[in-house]
Design a protein around this nucleic acid. Sequence first.
DNA 1: CAATAATTGGCACTTTAGGATGAGCAGATA
DNA 2: TATCTGCTCATCCTAAAGTGCCAATTATTG
Lengths: 168, 168
Amino acid sequence: MYLETVFLSCKIIAPFLFLYNMKKTIVLYGLAIALILLVIQVFQYQLFVKYISFEVFIGILAMIFTVIGVWFGIRWTSPKKTTIAKSSTKVLVFGDQLGSYGLSKRETEILEQINLGKTNQEIADELFISLSTVKSHVSNLFSKLDVKNRVQAIQKAKELTNTASTKV
Amino acid sequence: MYLETVFLSCKIIAPFLFLYNMKKTIVLYGLAIALILLVIQVFQYQLFVKYISFEVFIGILAMIFTVIGVWFGIRWTSPKKTTIAKSSTKVLVFGDQLGSYGLSKRETEILEQINLGKTNQEIADELFISLSTVKSHVSNLFSKLDVKNRVQAIQKAKELTNTASTKV
DNA sequence: CAATAATTGGCACTTTAGGATGAGCAGATA
DNA sequence: TATCTGCTCATCCTAAAGTGCCAATTATTG
């Protein structure tokens, strides 16, 4: 009964968390804009008291919004990527961007390992699956990316994830 | 005499062109800001005529500068990249930088072809040499780069040429 | 001119990659 | 409940990659 309640609560909350996560940047940006507009409202009467000239006020305002825009532009275009640590196998070069091109999560994981220059056997050892399974995934992702070998697969994936980054 | 004059003129102009090229983005952005401020000056009196409310005016202004900021942010962070022409085989990714790491000219050519995702037979056809020769070069360059397969070779070479590029 | 390096090519062999096909299980969905 | 998707694993086969070793010719260098 208690566990069921918790389970149901999770099911209700999850969509909102997902929506929040998706729109977080937009929400934060909107809040930032609202906050600054509020500050403008609060200090509006001071404009006419002429502590600062209108031009300087506009200049400061322009600077603030430009900085916000630059920050937003960088955030917006920057692909999700982690600095490649040499010995780490949790490096994500492609992240989750290839999903929209038909690759499953596991296939993307396999491709990450291929990108590290590993053999199929090494990938099998790393992910605790069999060599046959790795081959199966490799073959499937080659088909989805329309490539003939691992070098082409890597390049195609990088192309797609770069395109996806600049398209958003 | 005449050629000397032209030559001296070029020497004088070149630094300014270089400076202009370096600072072009900043200059253009400054001009954009100045232009918008000029527009504000021109329309300033209209603010008090109240065609639009102050809040709406600030909102439009914020939007304009945000867009400029986003554009600037994208331009600022966008990596310098060359589109790899699909059918071209004369694209040089590594150039002649690998010579200092022990690779011969031919070995670098072979690596360029590998980087295009080609099989050894395709490389042999492209360079008009035999499959055995390609294998020999491949094996040699693997040894010099201290790698085990072509994916690792490509990454090592990119690493080395990036290091060389940033070092300059 | 001799020595060295680069380039070319071969053969035999092992390892790895890749293609084709089939099958079972778990979870999600209509 | 049936269907679909993702993941797993297998077998068989061919192709490609890669290794080791050897050798000849040409270009470069001291």
